[in-house]
Each structure stands twice: as structure tokens, then as C-alpha cells.
Amino acid sequence: MTDTLQPDGGPAPGLQSGTASGSGAQAPLEDAAASRLQLVWRRFLRQRLAIAGLVVVALLFGVAYLSPYLGRWQYDQLDFTAFLEPPSASHWFGTTQNGFDVFALTMRGLQKSLVIGLLGALMATALAATVGAFAGYFGGAVNTALVTLIDLLMVLPAFLIIAILSPSFRGHTWLIFVVLLAAFQWMVTARIVRGMTLSLREREFVHAARFMGVPGWRIIFRHILPNMASLLIIDATINVSSLILAEVGLSFFGFGVQPPDVSLGTLIGDYANAALTFPWEFYFPAAFLVILVLAINLVGDGLRDAFDPNAQGHH
């Protein structure tokens, strides 16, 4: 029974009660859940950087997928009249020593990076949510087994393991690579989800459901996971950028996306040594990569602030 010091913590007072009428009932209010989403959205919109990030991501998406119709060259097309040409009207970002168009390559790489990031993040977050929630909710042997798995995977150096496995997906679809990336990306989140589940499990509404006879798996998907939606959304966003960075790291050494596929990572790996001599080969893909990751991180940061305005002392 304390006075709320920070009225913006928890449900805002304005949502709790309007003008109370005598019969224990309420004057009409808008839907509280809808208004919570609106509130989050309003807070998000107020953060100009996050909005900018969102716009940039959308633009990059558009440019990457429209590029085959924008540029004059395709990523697998060679221009035998232009080797190692600096940017020009014909080759906006210049060409490589084989005569590939750097713009087309970069856009192709951008496509791949975006898809890898989004797909992998979705998989990683879904896995984290499921494993974390089951470990936390059921406890006992299930918990021990899953926690050991998490611990083990965290000790396994992801970078090294994927590298070791890289010969086996050479020549196969890059989807295997995405699955592997995701498989090493979920553990930290799973731990957080498990921790939150442990505390949610003791929340009274979960007890209530249990004492009604609702089965555990249903409690998890109906009560526990929806109550960490904000964490999961933020996590998925951050995962997108982490996965894009991981892809770059692995592809840099040739352990990631395999030729003839092109990603931002393979481009950066191939042309890192050309950065001084033929800067367009390196700096265009690198710049697109940094802009993409930065934009996604801005969106993630904005979401975090919008969902939880107190987390970083924002008022």
C-alpha cells in the first residue's frame, strides 16, 4: 500500500480507473490491451532514431529486392569491358577484377543477409522461448536436462563448431547454415526466458490456472509466453542483427555462405585486402552492412524503450 512514485511504472493510473461510479462499475474506457499497444506504439513513434531505423530497414529491403530491375547488371553477369573500374554511370559501385558489378553483388548480398537474419532470428527466438519456458515451468528432470543442454551449447564455441561443420553444407542449401546459426543463438535468451518463467510460474494467475486443472503445456502457451511477448519481440530484433554479424564473420573465412551464393560476408571477406587499393570493392558492401545492422539495432533499442520506459531511466 504505497503511493506510486513513478506513475509511469506499471499500468498507468489513467488506465486503472476513470471516474468511478457508485455501483462498483466503471465509466466506459477504451480497451486496455488495445490502449497498451497504442501506448507502446506512441512511445515508439516518439523516438525519431528508431523510426529512422525502421525506415532504413524498409528502404534496404526494397532496394535489395528491386535492384535487379534498378541496375543494369545482374549479380552473376560479367562485364568483359570493365575490370576493376571505379564507380561510374554504368557501374554505380564499380566493378571487380572479374568484371562483376559491385552494386549488383552488394544488393544480392544484402538480400541474403536480410533473409538469413530474419529467418534465423525467428528460429532462434522460437526455440529459446520454447526450451526456456518448458525448463522453467516443469522444473525437475526436464529442467536439468534442458539447462545442461543450454550450458553445453554455451560452452561449445559456436564459431568453431559451425566452421567445422562448414564442409558438410558446402554444396547444399544455405538454409542448413541458417539453421546452424540459429542453433547457437538461442541459449542466452532461453536462460532469460527460463528465469522469467520461474518467477511467472509462482504468479497467482498461473497457480490459479494450475489449480483449475489446465495442463502445463497449455499454461505455457496461453499464460507464460504471452506475458513475455515484449522480451521476445525485442530479442528477436536484436537476434536479427547478431545473426547478420555472425554470418559475416563466418563467411569472411569461407565457413558460411558458399559460392556461387553471395552474401555481404563473402564480399567483405573477398575484398578486405582490396580496401586500400580498390576501396569500392570493400567499402560499398561494408557500408551497407553497417547501415543495416545499425538500423536494426536502433529499432531494437526503440522497441525496448517503448515496451519498458523505465529500463534505461527514460522518462
Binding site: L15, Q16, S17, A20, Q26, L29, D31, A32, A33, R36
Partner: peptide, 9 residues
């Protein structure tokens, strides 16, 4: 019935 708990005191 369609209101969320947050709408109640």
C-alpha cells in the same frame, strides 16, 4: 466481459 484486467481497480 471484453475488458482487460488493467481496466479494473
Amino acid at each position: 466481459v471484453n475488458r482487460y484486467p488493467a481496466a479494473f481497480s
